[in-house]
């Protein structure tokens, strides 16, 4: 079935094997360059839905397409390759490697994608670092970064390979208001410029107005 939108999910059903949590989503559609805010209280299932949309979780039922690719049925190895090449992910816990520097963390996906980091990729990484005010931290080990700095490194890493799809799980949670706007600008601007759909999990009511669409996930808990 051809996907009319760049991110498309239909009749998604998911649970973790217990009775306390079950997610049911009839439809999610995010077009090129547009943004979807996943809203709701903690534990509502926002992260679960985001992971279903990226292929990190496999739904019990339903289908997920990213562009022409049905990620919900991709074999694990293929799904990993697809994410590395086409998906930019900002994890809730930042998921940095403490023994690498900020710069090495930013360039890590590129290194595994092509064996070596192209000078163009490194240039883009440094530009992103500058834009997110972490340029001077490029050579600092991640273990010595503050929470806010780690968060910005995680966002830069997600965007450095110019992904076709961007998923961000609370990417502004540890930031002060000025830097929250800064990081949000980077993500929204990238989505617009690259024509990439953006799915953004947040608690932050200040950001709600910036989304093209929102989805209140708490309504989906059984």
């Amino acid at each position: 079935m051809p996907a009319p939108s760049l991110i498309s999910a239909r009749d998604l059903r998911f649970d973790y094997g217990g009775e306390s949590f079950a997610l049911s989503v009839d439809a999610v559609e995010v077009s090129s360059g547009r943004s979807l805010g996943l809203l709701g209280p903690s534990g509502a299932g926002k992260t679960t839905l985001l992971r279903l949309l990226t292929g990190l979780l496999v739904p019990r039922a339903g289908k997920v397409w990213l562009g022409e690719t049905e990620v919900s049925t991709l074999q694990a190895g293929m799904a990993r390759r697809f994410r590395l090449e086409q998906v930019g992910l900002v994890f809730q816990d930042f998921a940095l490697l403490d023994y690498l520097t900020a710069g090495e963390n930013i360039l890590l996906p590129g290194k595994f994608l092509s064996g070596a980091v192209a000078s163009e990729t490194e240039k883009r990484g440094r530009e992103l670092a500058e834009r997110m005010e972490i340029k001077e931290l490029w050579n600092r080990p991640a273990v010595r970064l503050s929470q806010g700095e780690r968060q910005r490194v995680a966002v830069a890493r997600a965007l450095v390979q110019r992904p076709k799809f961007v998923f961000a799980d609370e990417p502004t949670a540890s930031l002060d208001p000025r830097r929250r706007e800064l990081v949000a600008d980077v993500l929204f601007d990238y989505a617009k410029e690259a024509g990439a759909p953006l799915v953004f999990v947040t608690h932050d009511s200040a950001l709600v107005e910036r989304f093209d669409e929102t989805l209140h996930v708490e309504a989906l808990i059984r």
């Binding site: 190895g77 990993r80 994410r83 590395l84």
Partner: peptide, 9 residues
């Protein structure tokens, strides 16, 4: 984490 980013097994 590395697997989630997409690094192969």
């Amino acid at each position: 984490t590395l697997a989630d980013i997409g690094i192969s097994a």
